[in-house]
Write a protein that binds this DNA or RNA. Structure first.
Lengths: 253, 253
DNA sequence: CGTCCGCTTGAATCGATTCAAACTTAGTGG
DNA sequence: CCACTAAGTTTGAATCGATTCAAGCGGACG
């Protein structure tokens, strides 16, 4: 619209990471101002994926990892038996594909949950670059170890916590991730269907639904479809931490 | 014993990774012959830990990661509530502490399950070294992404599989790790008590015990305490893959 | 307008847990 | 060297949370 600024449409769109609103969340946060263009040189910015579109597929040869610019991504692994396990949800500023860094094949499948814009970093170029930029290397190590940790947290959640605790934990996680982006941490739209929540948390869809209604009747939240409003964040936190007291399992809630 | 070779006991024992029987499993496998001494220069080799001794503790400042030389290690995370979740078992040739690489604090606690010998790699030195040795960097990325993947596998196991399937999977994992070290994959000693198995797999101890006896009565294995003999590996594999067919959940076993 | 898909709700079932208790093994001290 | 305790393991019976199966509901879309 309006007269377009004359871009040479042939040139691969040169990214300007420092103008990106997510530069304080994404990879740029780890590199010096004057090294930024070496990062911009390898990134292909802002490619659009439609809802349901696959970004990459498990077992296909590895090419890149991706930063979410807008929208959201879910990753999942598929067993030989064809069962799916959702392994993560990725929101703007987060990096998808770290579980495949250093491998030849993607370890999971990544799929757009909605219309999503991604920045693509070719793995080989990125790996090279981390040799030249030690802070970037350090940051990558950090991101990967965080990924391991959060996966361990998930395992913990799955093995020790009730349905209510798992869902409370997920809601709080989403909330804090929205807040990080200066968005409301209490009123937001779930990017994923109940089905994916259930799968991720190791529950049946019906159970997720039941817990949502239970939370509503307790006045903890209001939910209509994917629209969620957290009315009592403290109560949610209590639910997740309740584990402690329940661990003692002496009296009752 | 016998007349000792005259070592200068003052010198920090200089490691010789290339003489180590695990050099084809451990970090040395990733570095060129002639770069090996740069790795040896930063490692402190063969420190001994007694059963139950802590190698490092969650939230304490990070120092090193460790390669298991002999014995075995368990890692676990502790919630504010004091609940423990075992996150992994580490056997000779495996690297402990990757979930903390790039952090300031250890993300978990590591404890020796038996008398164990470890090689210590200071994190900062290791990180520096990976800048100089790209293959080593690549290998670290690979190890970390494998760690993420196996943690996702665990999550999958916890959320989708029955007690029998989880235990079968663990036994097969241990079996293949013994085999990798040229040891029997069918007759071995579990390094961990039932308790840790249960915690790791998200089960009650009693359930673990029951499954072991069930497997025995089915002739799949023989177990006396920690001594295990797998009699029918194929049956175990069937149990784990059975998920597929059971997913259909039509007829019965 | 009717179909499909995602979400919700109810009732019955089941696997695993909890509680309780016996048993085995290993380690300690008399 | 054996008794004795502590820790780890096994077994049984009752209970419970979540699942499964079944059905109804609402909105989206051709």
């Amino acid at each position: 619209m309006a007269k377009a600024i004359p871009l040479r449409s042939v040139s691969p769109l040169k990214a300007s990471c420092n103008q990106c609103s997510l530069s304080n969340l994404c990879l740029p946060l780890a590199v010096e101002e004057n090294d930024l263009d070496s990062l911009e040189n390898i990134v292909q910015q802002g490619k659009i994926y439609n809802r349901g579109e696959h970004v990459f597929d498990q077992s296909s040869p590895i090419r890149s990892c991706f930063a979410v610019k807008s929208g959201s991504i879910k990753t999942s692994i598929i067993t030989e038996s064809g069962e799916e396990q959702v392994t993560g949800f990725f929101m703007p500023g987060e990096l998808v594909g770290l579980d495949s860094l250093g491998s030849d094949q993607y370890a999971c499948t990544a799929k757009a949950l909605e219309r999503t814009s991604l920045c693509e970093f070719p793995m080989d170029k990125l790996e090279e670059l981390t040799i030249k930029l030690p802070e970037l290397q350090h940051h990558m190590y950090q991101l990967m170890s965080k990924e391991i940790q959060s996966s361990h947290q998930l395992a913990m959640l799955l093995s020790k916590n009730t349905a209510e605790e798992r869902i409370a934990a997920l809601l709080l996680s989403l909330s804090s991730r929205f807040r990080r982006r200066r968005m409301s941490g209490t009123t937001f739209t779930l990017p994923m269907p109940r089905n994916d929540i259930a799968n991720f948390l190791g529950l049946a869809v019906e159970t997720v639904s039941r817990v949502f209604t239970r939370f509503q009747s307790q006045g903890i939240l209001r939910a209509k479809g994917r629209e969620v409003e957290l009315l009592d964040v403290e109560a949610l936190q209590t639910v997740t931490h309740e584990v402690s007291k329940q661990a003692c399992r002496s009296s009752q809630s």
